[in-house]
């Protein structure tokens, strides 16, 4: 059998007849899907900011699900329109697509698959505060290929899903409204540490941003140049993280001044101090 005739036979076995009506329907379906995705994104964002806080995360987290439903429905419709979906054809299509993707669209498909896996594993969800590599912020978008982070500097950072294969992801709140905020304070070795601990605990309890249902703890660490006190507590809403930390520092410093507590006296040229975590979120 001549090659041209063979190709023509495969084509007719695999694909349905191409008509203008089908093309029009496909275009309309893609248009509706695109519009639907946009509408879902806009409406979930709008609704999540209008409702009470406790429903915000729930609404935001539903975004990928709605997008997946729209996407799967549209793809199924298009396949059904243009392909003869017999068992043999499915195998042939899958093989062809696999080869094509392996060479041309490897990273893109890797991201899409990682996005689907992430839907089930949930290392991050819309509304979470996450850190991937050097980027920290609130996750505001969950796309087919990538997620979007809103950083404290008001930048939108787009990170492909396939980073989850190789990068560590730090999620501060995993779907909850609260997430721990750690604030460091440093003092001279000679100060009365009980007073500092009491002040720090009371600073957390007196801050209007504190979630009182969650624990407040103070831990200490010794350095050659002084003592570090780390206050760990939770704001009512992790979005207030930086305002909260500022409020804690402001309150504490007022009380430290009242008690005349001495800060460490570092020699000139001493290198900068980094907290124990090594990845401070500075706002």
């Amino acid at each position: 059998m001549p090659i041209a005739q063979l190709n023509s036979s495969v084509f007719t076995d695999l694909f349905t007849d191409l008509t203008l009506a089908k093309l029009l329907r496909a275009a309309i379906a893609i248009g509706i899907a695109y519009g639907g995705m946009w509408l879902v994104e806009v409406s979930t964002t709008w609704a999540s900011e209008k409702v009470a806080r406790r429903f915000r995360m729930l609404i935001k987290q539903s975004l990928p699900l709605w997008k997946a439903i729209i996407l799967i429905t549209t793809i199924s419709y298009l396949l059904q329109q243009f392909l003869k979906l017999s068992q043999t054809n499915l195998l042939a299509i899958t093989g062809t697509i696999a080869i094509a993707l392996a060479f041309a669209l490897k990273d893109y498909v890797s991201s899409i698959i990682a996005g689907i896996v992430a839907l089930f594993e949930a290392p991050y969800r819309v509304g979470d505060r996450i850190q991937i590599g050097d980027h920290y912020g609130e996750m505001v978008g969950y796309g087919l290929r990538a997620i979007q982070l809103h950083t404290p500097d008001d930048n939108i950072v787009t990170i492909p899903h396939n980073k989850t294969w190789t990068e560590a992801i730090a999620n501060a709140n995993t779907g909850a409204l609260e997430a721990q905020v750690a604030t460091d304070f440093y003092f001279d070795h000679q100060i009365e540490s009980d007073i500092v601990i009491t002040i720090l605990r009371q600073a957390a309890y007196s801050s209007p941003y504190t979630q009182l249902r969650l624990p407040v703890t103070v831990i200490m660490r010794e350095y050659p140049w002084g003592t570090q006190f780390k206050l760990r507590c939770y704001p009512l809403d992790i979005r207030d993280e930086f305002t909260y930390r500022t409020d804690l520092i402001r309150r504490s410093k007022q009380a430290f001044r009242r008690h005349g507590l001495a800060y460490p006296n570092l020699p000139a040229g001493w290198p900068g101090i980094r907290g124990e975590s090594g990845s401070e979120r500075d706002g």
Binding site: A52, R53, R54, F55, L177, E178, Q211, L212, R213, L236, D237
Partner: peptide, 9 residues
């Protein structure tokens, strides 16, 4: 109700 819905204690 508003405060309870907004995660207040």
């Amino acid at each position: 109700s508003d405060l309870a819905n907004n995660n207040f204690f």
